[in-house]
Design a protein around this nucleic acid. Structure first.
Lengths: 127, 127
DNA sequence: ATTAAATTGAGAATTATTCTCATTTTTGCT
DNA sequence: AGCAAAAATGAGAATAATTCTCAATTTAAT
């Protein structure tokens, strides 16, 4: 695999945030750095990063996929309305139990997501 | 909300399987019972069933969403290649810890999915 | 420098899902 | 049974995220 400035930029942009961004957001950020970058290039390199284990795709059952450069064992909260994704703190015992389970059944990985309406969407509902 | 044969059929088809089918598969099965049923009707009623809490959407980060009429507390395995979804057995302690966590942070629900290449895809890889 | 392999950008193509709207079905009421 | 309002449908158009194609450019080894 050869070096490319585009790939490096996609990775840097993804690493720059904890917001679990969508491909479209990453594309917009990359354009600020490499104005001529193509959307397909962003998708291509995100897919590569995931295949290489340098990023994960966070499935939330919304229209757009979310990406995360944090590949450590951690968990997500997601708003079922707007699709926003955040890191969710869970108890140490649960953390340990999950880690053990994952090792026991030798999964490549797992995804644990709690669904909860986020503050913004709750405010809009109450209007 | 009024009764409709289409809605009942969508629900019955979904309940008839443990395969976590896609909307397209459900549509094909429904057509065997109501040949003239429309695809939009299937989507509409799946969405309704989810909103009513009679089914869940299983996000697996693949192209198509998967649905499940089993709304009990349980967990999934998913193949990252073909998107197949199955029910995954986990240990009682983990089960209890998850239940507690969910109640503690009063989430509407959560999704726990282990990723593992399925037998079919593994066989294809080795060819 | 040269060349083969890898990567890109542009836009077309694909595909899952949602939307629109005229028509049909359901249901409460008489 | 007959009627009207509300709900639901089917068909196909519209939307939107993602993938594909391919000629042109860039990378990296010789």
């Amino acid at each position: 695999m050869n070096y490319s400035r585009q790939r490096e930029t996609v990775y840097n942009v993804l690493r720059s945030t904890k917001d679990h961004p969508s491909a479209a957001w990453i594309y917009d950020e990359c354009k600020k750095i490499i104005p001529g970058i193509g959307l397909a290039t962003v998708y291509r390199n995100l897919e590569l990063l995931v295949a290489q284990g340098k990023a994960i795709k966070v499935p939330v059952g919304q229209d757009q996929d979310r990406y995360d450069a944090d590949i450590s064992l951690h968990f997500h909260g997601a708003c079922p309305i707007c699709g926003k994704v955040w890191d969710e703190e869970i108890s140490a015992p649960l953390n340990a139990a999950l880690k053990a389970e994952c090792e026991k059944n030798n999964s490549e990985g797992f995804s644990l997501t709690f669904f909860r309406v986020c503050g913004d969407c709750k405010a809009k509902q109450e209007q």
